[in-house]
Design a protein around this nucleic acid. Structure first.
Lengths: 188, 188
DNA sequence: CGCCAACTTGATGGCTGTCAAGTCAGGTGG
DNA sequence: CCACCTGACTTGACAGCCATCAAGTTGGCG
């Protein structure tokens, strides 16, 4: 959809499919900074500097709604409700990144995966899909990148959770057998 | 200043001193999510849900300017420039958290500290203070919390950098002897 | 049929967490 | 003025988690 450094012109509202965003630092290191589901807004990191701070890439077939930022601004001056909503969207993104920081800074591999799965589950539920049975549209490597670990570790943790009866996993198809067990695992 | 869960009523603009913000998860784990210097805005994570998602605590003597959010909203409808500025502040916070995610997910202890010191240096410079000679107002534990490591590791990395002639460090007084060396260290 | 990307699993080493002991500076009270 | 105490910090020893390297499996596709 766009690359880091591109001039910022619009926000993108995901309608169907999945979008990943990727940040890069000077040293060439890169990391997935988020996966965006239908109803979520991509590109808000571009407002600050007038150019995008990350890449955004659709994973598989995806529909997005392009919202030209200038028009959005004008609209929001006339309709306070829109403005307020925009503020909330931006703030929510801050909260999300903040909780990812907590995850990356203080959880171990197993806990990160548990947290990730529960987060997906919750977002699927909110969209009317099954809470405990879904298909991952991203690779192990992309999951690992988001969670700050190697793809081998992701794979191993999935296997271990499978053995312990917490989840069922077959390739990209996941079933949560014990959401409670996963939850317990995070709080130590 | 406020605690997680408190009703959100205002944003806080730091005028002098230093503020830290802390996020907590369900399991009782906590982490410093940011240090805020004069001119920076604290509390934007509260807009999303109408209540704060983190604690904010002043480190030492600190002045803040309280900006009641309702008034800020009304103001911004009349003055588009203010509205745009508010958007940029929110977006900048997203960018900051995003680069912290990258730091936490893909850098090693030495690189994190180097990155932290250079970031401080840059922000001091922007405020007219010395770029290479400053006093840390936070403890090793707070630094470690922000960077996702233990206070012992912070201490060890400082010592190692000192031995290698990259920095001079005496308690909380830091001098960067080779910002270039620190920069090189991050890009591998 | 062969190729390739994605994934799984094993072996090994290193970074950093953890536990422990000791130093240092500042503050309090006798 | 000194003893004492406490919090912040430093340094060492050791273990554990996870990265890294490597090899093998699977499934999809031309």
């Amino acid at each position: 959809m766009y690359r880091a450094g591109d001039a910022f012109a619009a926000l993108y509202l995901v309608r169907t499919g999945l979008v990943k965003s990727i940040v890069l630092n000077e040293g060439g290191r890169e990391q997935v900074s988020g996966f965006y589901m239908p109803g979520e807004m991509v590109g808000v990191d571009g407002i600050a500097a007038g150019k995008h701070a990350s890449d955004a890439v659709a994973l598989g077939d995806t529909d997005v709604c392009v919202l030209p930022y200038e028009r959005l601004e004008k609209l929001s001056h006339r309709a306070p409700a829109i403005d307020r909503h925009l503020h909330r969207i931006l703030s929510k993104e801050v909260v999300r990144k903040q909780s990812m920081m907590l995850l990356l800074g203080s959880l171990r591999a197993e806990e990160r995966i548990a947290s990730f799965l529960l987060n997906l589950s919750q977002r699927f539920t909110a969209r009317g899909f099954s809470a405990c049975d879904f298909v991952l549209r991203m690779t192990r490597e992309e999951i690992g990148s988001l969670l700050g670990m190697q793809l081998e570790t992701v794979s191993r943790v999935f296997s271990r959770m499978h053995k312990e009866g917490l989840i069922q996993i077959d390739g990209k198809h996941v079933r949560l057998l014990s959401p409670q067990g996963l939850r317990r695992m995070i709080g130590n």
